[in-house]
Design a protein around this nucleic acid. Structure first.
Length: 603
RNA sequence: GGUCCUGUAGCUCAACUGGAUAGAGCAGCUGACUUCUAAUCAGCAGGUUGGGGGUUCGAGUCCUCCCGGGAUCACCA
């Protein structure tokens, strides 16, 4: 009983929030209806595969609003030639009043031009959905785990981490908007030798805090100033007595102090970017709980683990100290990897790979069949083994997608930013956010697809010009609010509720309809971005939408009859305000996915 | 040498994963400001998609071989 109500609620909500308003999906359904009719008539064979049918905006504007390859794809299920089959489909579709004209082109494309009423009608949907405009149901409430950042807790985050953080967070937001149940996860590498190094580095700083002259930080330890406070904390809490204890105990104590402090610092940095995780999974906990043993046992039962000796790496530069030694290996080569991979080092301790497998099995057992990891480009070489392991350990029920973030090149007015050569001195994430603001960082990190390198210019990203996509999109949004403010001065306050009553049949000019069309494309963009795990598509779309808007705004200079505000025509003004309000909602909705706050004023 | 990214207008990048005549911005010319903020816009020009071969109705996109750029390559994470 309860679930029925819940489901009913979800359906209502999906209508309220604008889900299922994807106009392309709508017309695809109409096309499929015609095809089923032709199946009944025996023109198309029963059981024809409809999955390869696409309904999309044609590249060429003169080809209409929508194009489908249906007749071409279904050619082999019919005795008719694709071109003739297209004619049959077109005949049925022509009964649809919302289709203004149908054209059959090339080898059998069916091009549809939609009636203005279709585009005018979109306004009501967008206004109702408001900032939820574009939401989709393709996720069907399925669980997805997105793991991102996962920086080693040995120091502050640098710019490279920022990209992964933004991409992961935007991807999570995007999937939520497509009705996936998303968990944001951070895997803490708190068990490796680098944590011992962290502890030793903190102990040096503790001596320093106790007044000892430590000189230069020894080679191999972390020299960064950020450890000074950790040393002070250790000194305050434990005093010199700690240094009398056996070394192993000192390290253990330092570790227990330094680790939480590092994680707190990282969380603060992420917070400055507006990035938060739901789950912090500790590698050490996977060892302690026996999860590592468990996942390895599982692979062992499958016969995928053996003791063996790996070939030296192929090529002309084998490591100088390479020597063959038997190790515990996973047969990842059976799952598409180039070689089998070591689970244990030659001394019998675990490699990092083993707990990584446990980590993903843990996610799977928590209900995430779909997992997405966002990694830096330097980890690209591990994709195959990790995917292999996930496939194996979940008996092919789990799926892992790995998004690789290429490097960020920091520039200042066209010149590369020089990094200090002193070890430990990077440009930190915090410095970048402090200088340009989180919204700018977030937007810029999404202006390139994740696997392409990205240039980030401190000067350009703060310019108020066409060159700067952040400004350009924000300005479009602010400009709309400016117009609404001006209109309010003439016609009295304008509330969103009032706009729903506007007479949209007054929107007829092709330039105006063009804006409505671009706005209407958003749900489709959102879906394709979600399906492909590519949040950057939202950024590109917003630039396109902003451009269409600015273009229409300027058209009002040449043709005053197309200005948004016509002093003596309230009906026309209200219709146009409704139209641009929808544009603002689409921008706000897209920016929300990127985690960027829309501006209502640009002073 | 292996693997993975990558190569598209002078420059920076798109192209909805196989669709029609490959699109934007910058830079370069030409034009529009007592503004619904010109912080913007319109127009012109710019191409053998690194190269060759293949798959099919159709290829920037898929397969293959070359050429160039980047990342990575037992026992570090």
């Amino acid at each position: 009983m309860l679930w029925k109500n819940t489901k009913h609620f979800l359906i209502c909500q999906s209508i309220i929030t604008g889900r299922m308003m994807n106009i392309f999906a709508d017309f695809r359904a109409r096309i499929e209806k015609s095809i089923r009719e032709l199946m009944k008539q025996g023109v198309i064979a029963d059981g024809a595969d409809l999955s390869r049918i696409s309904v999309e905006p044609p590249r060429e504007e003169s080809h209409g609003d929508m194009a489908t390859n249906a007749a071409m794809v279904l050619g082999k299920f019919s005795e008719l030639q694709p071109h003739d089959l297209a004619g049959k489909i077109a005949d049925l579709l022509s009964e649809d009043e919302e289709i203004a004209s149908i054209d059959i082109a090339g080898p059998g494309f069916i091009n549809l031009s939609l009636a203005p009423s279709v585009w005018q009608g979109q306004v009501a949907h967008v206004l109702r959905a408001a900032k939820a405009y574009g939401n989709s149901d393709i996720g069907a409430d399925k669980k997805v785990n997105v793991e991102y950042v996962s920086a080693n807790p040995t120091g502050p985050m640098h710019v490279g981490h920022a990209r992964g953080a933004v991409v992961g967070d935007a991807l999570a937001r995007l999937l939520e908007r497509a009705n996936y149940q998303v968990t944001r996860e951070y895997y803490i590498n708190d068990a490796g030798s680098q944590i011992d190094t962290l502890a030793r580095s903190a102990l040096i700083r503790m001596r320093e805090a106790l007044g000892e002259d430590i000189g230069d930080i020894p080679e191999g330890l972390y020299p960064g100033d950020y450890l000074i406070v950790v040393g002070q904390a250790l000194a305050t809490e434990y005093g010199a007595a700690l240094l009398e204890k056996p070394e192993a105990e000192q390290v253990a104590v330092a570790k227990s102090k330094a680790l939480p402090m590092m994680m707190e610092m990282i969380r603060d940095d992420l917070d400055a970017l507006g990035v938060r995780h739901d789950v912090f999974l500790s590698e050490q906990s996977l060892h302690d709980s026996g999860a590592v043993d468990k996942s390895l046992n599982r692979l062992n039962e499958m016969g995928l683990i053996y003791e063996g000796v790996l070939e030296p790496p192929k090529g002309k530069t084998p490591p100088p100290d390479w020597e063959p030694s038997p190790q515990t290996l996973f047969k990842s080569s059976e799952f598409g990897d180039d070689s089998d991979r070591a689970l244990k080092k030659s001394d019998g301790s675990w490699t990092y790979f083993a707990p990584d497998i446990a980590c993903h099995l843990d996610k799977f057992e928590r209900g995430y069949e779909q997992m997405i990891d966002v990694w830096g480009a330097d980890h690209a070489g591990y994709i195959k083994r990790m995917k292999s392991a996930v496939t194996a350990v979940t008996a092919e029920a789990g799926n892992l997608d790995v998004k690789i973030c290429q490097m960020v090149k920091l520039m200042r007015d066209g010149e590369p930013v020089k990094m200090s050569k002193r070890a430990g001195q990077f440009i930190t994430l915090r410095e970048v956010v402090d200088e340009v603001g989180k919204d700018v960082v977030r937007f810029m990190m999404l202006t390139r697809k994740n696997d392409a390198p990205l240039e980030f210019d401190f000067v350009k990203v703060q310019e108020q010009s066409r060159d700067n996509p952040v400004f350009y999109v924000q300005y479009a949004h602010a400009r709309i609010f400016s117009v609404i403010r001006n209109a309010s001065k003439i016609f009295g306050s304008i509330r969103d509720e009032d706009l729903a009553n506007a007479d949209m049949t007054l929107i007829v000019d092709p330039a105006e309809i063009a804006l409505l069309k671009t706005i209407s494309a958003f749900p489709r963009v959102l879906e394709s971005a979600a399906v492909n795990h590519e949040p950057h598509r939202i950024a590109f779309y917003l630039q396109d939408l902003a451009s269409t808007f600015h273009s229409l705004w300027n058209l009002g200079k040449e043709r005053p009859d197309l200005k948004f505000i016509i002093d003596d025509k309230k009906n026309v003004t209200m219709a146009r305000i409704s139209m641009i309000r929808c544009c603002a909602f689409a921008i706000a909705s897209g920016l929300d996915i990127m985690g960027v706050r829309p501006e209502e004023e640009m002073r």
